[in-house]
Design a protein around this nucleic acid. Structure first.
Lengths: 216, 216
DNA sequence: GTCAATGATCGTGTATACAAGAAATGAAGC
DNA sequence: GCTTCATTTCTTGTATACACGATCATTGAC
């Protein structure tokens, strides 16, 4: 537990939301949360205020906090922005690549390869996250890295769904190969283009998923 | 004043920070703020928690809140990301333009023209903001619109500095003309390219400004 | 039988009190 | 005279108490 309870609670509740323990639309009762985590309402409120500020929950005056339901369309929009930011990260990474970043990307890429070949979608899910984070870091832009990481976290639950789709693992990995090649070749524009479509396609796949669930 | 004090305080303190009343590095004493705004410490703390969550201030345990100093390099990074997001907004706007958006952009563009020709940099500053916001809205992506607006707000103080630079008003306006033409022509890629350089150049100009201040 | 109004209950919003930690100041020793 | 340690004070962190508003249920009237 972090040294101050508010921050710890924020992470705790955020994880609970992102792991879908608190589903979209769920009411977050302050007293319930307080007793659950064994603290008073004050730090709970502070945690909720922060989650409100980053757009994970909505607090309506005198009516409490509820988990925001982004809705399929908004999630698609988020993927669209994510694609753009990752594209920028890739393009910067290609131009600014140093030895440490090269090694980090290579290592993450290797782990992805192993997981993909083993068909282990859970392992690939984690390795894929590390791979993308390595690219953010390689961009050498701290602000971009933070923005990417934040958006990535929020899209995490929806990305996970897609890895279950048939053949997505191998397709994803082969896309990674192209991205790595472009970055290592210093071809910023190619890296941007590939990353944009690599991430953008997930938004489209998500739309397909939603559409297929709606017709059912 | 909004119906809940915490939200009102957040906006109030945020404005004070963005208008440089609270300079980077300044300590934000809870009791001082509480007495200044005539409330207790509780809502002040909630406001500070929110500002901490969106990255405007830093709260170190038991040591209080200070206004974050982004530093020139980080501000450049922020402009870089802003350029990318505005580029996306422009490209989407070109593809999805409807009559209402067209009128909003035209109106804002006209006001910019008047202010630029009058050489009124303060008026242009506001009209320019409306112009960019009209493009965000025209993108028809709520999430993108929010992200752009938020980043725009944080970069506001630094944009303002640049309008004072010689000839920037007329240069900026002529760039706007090209952007409007591209969007109205439905040329997404051209709109993206022009917006990216229109915003990106501000980051570079900011770097120049800092460099020239450093040599003095 | 249905709709509206009023009251009760529950939960949030704000204030205040108390505790714990950090910084500053003073004194003592080298 | 300078440095270090201890004490005091100030500020933050957490808890609790109280008040106001919203929602829901129950009762009465149409």
């Amino acid at each position: 537990m972090s040294e101050n309870v508010g921050r710890w609670l924020r992470d705790e509740i955020e994880n609970a939301i992102l792991s879908n323990e608190f589903s979209p639309g769920a009411r977050l009762d302050e007293t319930v949360l307080a007793s659950r985590f064994g603290v008073s309402r004050t730090p709970v409120r502070e945690a909720l205020m922060q989650l409100n500020a980053i757009g994970l929950i909505e607090i309506r005056p005198r009516r409490g906090a509820v988990v925001i339901d982004p809705g399929p369309h908004r999630i698609y929009e988020m993927f669209e922005v994510m694609a753009e930011l990752e594209g920028l990260a890739g393009s910067l990474a290609a131009r600014r690549l140093d030895e440490a970043a090269r090694q980090a990307i290579t290592a993450a890429h290797r782990r992805c390869e192993l997981s993909a070949k083993a068909g282990d979608s859970d392992a690939y899910y984690y390795d894929n996250e590390e791979f993308h984070k390595a690219i953010y870091a390689a961009s050498r832009s701290e602000f971009l890295e933070e923005q990417c990481a934040q958006l990535h976290r929020r899209l995490r639950p929806y990305r996970r769904l897609q890895l279950r789709v048939r053949n997505r693992l191998t397709t994803s990995f082969s896309e990674h190969c192209g991205i790595v090649d472009a970055i290592f070749a210093g071809d910023g524009e190619e890296a941007r283009r590939l990353l944009r479509s690599h991430v953008g396609i997930q938004g489209e796949r998500f739309s397909d998923l939603v559409a297929s669930m709606a017709t059912r």
